[in-house]
Design a protein around this nucleic acid. Structure first.
Lengths: 93, 93
DNA sequence: ACAATAGGCAAGTGGACACTTGCATGTCAA
DNA sequence: TTGACATGCAAGTGTCCACTTGCCTATTGT
């Protein structure tokens, strides 16, 4: 899961899905190219989406020849619990 | 920063410092070896600590020939803000 | 049916990274 | 001062990973 977040392109994809959920592969490619001048190929983005789906951060829904990608932030919450919560008694420091 | 979290050994180091803050390199090595049967060498752990210090997750304090390592969770908080907060209006879903 | 669109599969390549190895520096106790 | 302890530096190595390349499958519209 953390490895999935290690790549800057994948983080941008998550940003993109945060802003506009349920996009197709082509939409994501187009918007990343426009916003960040990211010249990532379609296959590269597709592989990133596979990684994100494997760790549960992205869920997909097929509809005909379209595949919509949805964000799922649930896997992120254990991060907070793991290191932020155990020290929550020291927030005034 | 996310790359620093991508390595499982580094995450275990953070766990270790969460449980017991301000350990030296040798302490961390010993405790990791005992707890997780991690046969990581001293140099490997040292390099991991360098990475964690570079991204600000660990801060160090020198005292004679000892170097104490302290956890700093501040760099983790933007993670929450970035993807969890923008969707906080949908928690009942 | 056929062309166009949306996406998938898989092998190959270059670079980054975790780890080792070997030696060097600095600190403390006798 | 000398030896033991705690840590630092740097080059070399093997593996993993992001990306490309080339071709394939499936769905839609005419």
């Amino acid at each position: 899961m953390f490895k999935a977040l290690a790549d800057p392109t994948r983080r941008k994809i998550l940003d993109e899905l945060t802003e506009r959920d349920g996009q197709t592969l082509f939409e994501i490619c187009a918007r990343l190219a426009m916003k960040y001048q990211l010249a990532s190929s379609r296959q590269a983005i597709s592989q990133h989406l596979d990684v994100l789906e494997d760790v549960g951060l992205v869920e997909t829904r097929r509809e005909g020849r379209y595949k919509f990608h949805h964000l799922n932030t649930a896997p992120l919450e254990p991060i907070v619990e793991r290191w932020l919560k155990p020290r929550s008694g020291r927030e005034s420091e």
